[in-house]
């Protein structure tokens, strides 16, 4: 059997975890799920047994404890693979399990074949490159890249087995002790329907005034490239890309952005891309749906004026 760590929000399994359950079925073995803190209805997702770890100390996330529980259940059931979603938490918990067991860990996989040896296809460079790799270990540790594998329902009645894990003080030391809520305000980059983004071509911190003006007219979020945050023109929270935020707007307007792989890794979810650049051969222009050639300092204010005129 294979064991899948299922993350949930108030007993609702998260989408990336359901995607992990779908990929887990490619092993062709019974799939068991492990949830920490609450049971969830997984009867549509091909799970034969749902294991629910309940412990008074698990009210807040404790990654070592999660790794200990996952390792204990996997050992007890002789799981041939342990799988989680390639979320921050999924990768963190599986990395800790890998550290405890010395087993190989392949992060952010998009395909697996059971082997032996287990073979995976996984993401590198934020998805700009794929790697085919073999895992040589008694068990495979795998996370599944979020939002790549579509969820395929597979109805099956799931038994629920609740248990109380043995946890040491050591395993509970690293835990969330406080949550600081984000300050509201502004349009969120991840949820914006339109993102107006500026790159090195904007030229300066002050140059972003025209980007903000257009964003304001469109109810859009302001984004930027890594070159811009490295120069200190915008905060890192505005950065779109591999080491920034991944966006999924209806329209992404890229102003003066060359389109390095670092940036494009953040745009895979964008429906339409409009690029404005002086260089018609810039990768951003070649990977866009619409291109305007020229100086953004003339074009962006002209678009803002045109929008005002049309209202």
């Amino acid at each position: 059997m294979v064991l899948v760590l299922v993350e949930h929000s108030e007993a609702n399994p998260t989408d990336p975890s359901l995607q992990a359950l779908t990929l887990a079925r490619s092993f062709g073995q019974p799939v068991h799920a492990l949830l920490v803190g609450a049971a969830a209805d997984l009867s549509e997702h091909g799970v034969s047994v749902t294991h629910v770890a309940e412990h008074v100390a698990l009210g807040s996330f404790a990654p070592d404890a999660w790794a200990a529980i996952l390792g204990e259940v996997a050992g007890r059931l002789s799981a041939s693979a342990v799988i989680a979603a390639g979320t921050e938490r999924g990768n963190e918990v599986i990395a800790r399990l890998a550290a405890r067991t010395g087993l190989p860990f392949a992060a952010n996989c998009i395909a697996v074949s059971p082997g032996p040896p287990v073979t995976v296809t996984r993401l590198r460079w934020g998805g700009s490159l794929l790697e085919e790799a073999r895992l040589h270990g008694s068990h495979a540790l795998i996370t599944v890249a979020p939002h790549v594998v579509p969820v395929e329902p597979s109805p099956m009645p799931a038994d629920i087995e609740r248990f109380t894990p043995d946890l040491s003080d050591e395993d509970l030391l690293v835990r969330v002790v406080e949550h600081v809520a984000a300050l509201g305000g502004g349009v969120s980059l991840t949820e914006a329907k339109v993102v107006v983004s500026g790159g090195r071509g904007v030229g300066s911190k002050e140059g972003f005034a025209m980007i903000e003006e257009l964003a304001g007219l469109l109810g859009a979020a302001v984004g930027c490239s890594r070159a811009v945050t490295s120069a200190g023109w915008r905060p890192h929270t505005d950065q779109v890309g591999q080491t920034g935020t991944k966006v999924a707007p209806e329209v992404y307007i890229a102003c003066g952005i060359s389109g390095a792989t670092q940036h494009m890794a953040g745009l895979k979810g964008a429906k339409r891309i409009l690029a404005i650049n002086t260089d018609p051969e810039a990768p951003m222009m070649l990977n866009a749906d619409y291109a305007v050639v020229g100086d953004l300092k003339e074009i962006v204010p002209a678009i803002s004026a045109e929008i005002r005129k049309s209202r």
Binding site: P104, A106, T119, E131, E132, A133, R134, L135, H136
Partner: peptide, 8 residues
Amino acid sequence: QLELVRLI
């Protein structure tokens, strides 16, 4: 233990 086969 995690053996690179090829890049794509």
